[in-house]
């Protein structure tokens, strides 16, 4: 139950050791240290410094030219909440490695820095030179879902014309990311149309996609999805996390301990899924 003691028992790493490992010779220890610093939210300034340096690493390469250490460093920097990392993450958006760009887009979303919007739009339109596609099918040229989600979270209303075409993208996951962003960027009355697109996606044949859409609906907190979430063929754990997102959005509408009718409805549904 005590998470702090659990950390030490599980890993045997200390903050000092992780920071030292990240600068050491052993590539395996470096890539693990980068993950570890993010996982355990080590936001000490020295940790940020070494992670930012790791985003420029040239030593750790896969046979296809990927940068595993840069990927982990980019992911960790998003979790640590220090906006000093924004310039290096912006540079990482132009990295040849698809997965570094994906991690950088997700981290810029988490850091909530609107200065990244213009470059994200460039990337969405595939106008950044030297960026290689994903190595796996369908070999997307850019991590469109991560970019679209970041634009939605960052409130990039100016990007709506660039986002809209992705509602019809051939990859369902990308369509849903576009719908999610459009929901967040639209006026309240107009947004439901995009929330309803996600509700329809809850009946997709592919379980992985249904799970992803549950996460999307939780992230945007679309109240109109509550009943459909409960009916989705997926694990109750994931439905509960999704409904928690709806509930948290409802809680913001009233001052405690008052509850909106929507909050009461969502909790009544959640009770049945426990």
């Amino acid at each position: 139950m005590n998470s702090e003691s659990g950390i030490q028992d599980d890993t045997q790493l200390t903050i000092e050791q992780a920071i030292a490992n990240l600068q050491g010779e052993d590539l395996g220890l470096r890539v693990y240290a980068a993950w570890w610093l993010g996982r355990f939210r080590v936001d000490a300034p020295e940790a940020i410094d070494v992670l930012m340096a790791a985003l420029e690493d040239e030593d750790d390469r896969t046979h296809t030219g990927g940068y595993p250490l840069r990927r982990n460093a980019a992911r960790a920097l998003g979790k640590l909440g220090d906006r000093r990392a924004v310039p290096v993450l912006l540079h990482a958006l132009t990295c040849s490695d698809f997965y570094v760009r994906e991690a950088a887009a997700q981290s810029l979303e988490m850091l909530g820095d609107r200065s990244s919007i213009s470059l994200l739009v460039e990337l969405l339109n595939d106008r950044v030179a030297g960026t290689h596609p994903a190595p796996e099918p369908p070999q997307l040229t850019q991590p469109f879902d991560a970019i679209l989600e970041a634009l939605g979270t960052l409130g990039a209303v100016e990007a709506i014309p660039d986002i809209r075409p992705f509602l019809d993208h051939f990859v369902p996951r990308v369509q849903y990311a576009a719908a999610r962003a459009m929901y967040q960027l639209s006026e309240p009355g107009m947004a439901d149309e995009y929330g309803d697109r996600l509700v329809q996606a809850l009946s997709h044949d592919d379980l992985q996609l249904r799970r992803a859409v549950l996460a999307d609906l939780g992230a945007i907190g679309y109240l109109g999805a509550a009943d459909a979430i409960a009916q989705t063929l997926a694990e109750n754990s994931l439905k509960l996390i999704s409904l928690k997102g709806l509930l948290e959005k409802q809680v913001l509408l009233t001052s405690p301990p008052h509850l909106s009718p929507g909050a009461i409805k969502v909790m009544t549904i959640m009770d049945e899924l426990l």
Binding site: L247, E248, Q250, V251, P256, P257, L259, A263
Partner: peptide, 13 residues
């Protein structure tokens, strides 16, 4: 957790 707090409010009410 805000969700847990909300559920407590509902229980109290």
């Amino acid at each position: 957790s805000a969700a847990v707090r909300a559920r407590v409010w509902m229980a109290q009410q």
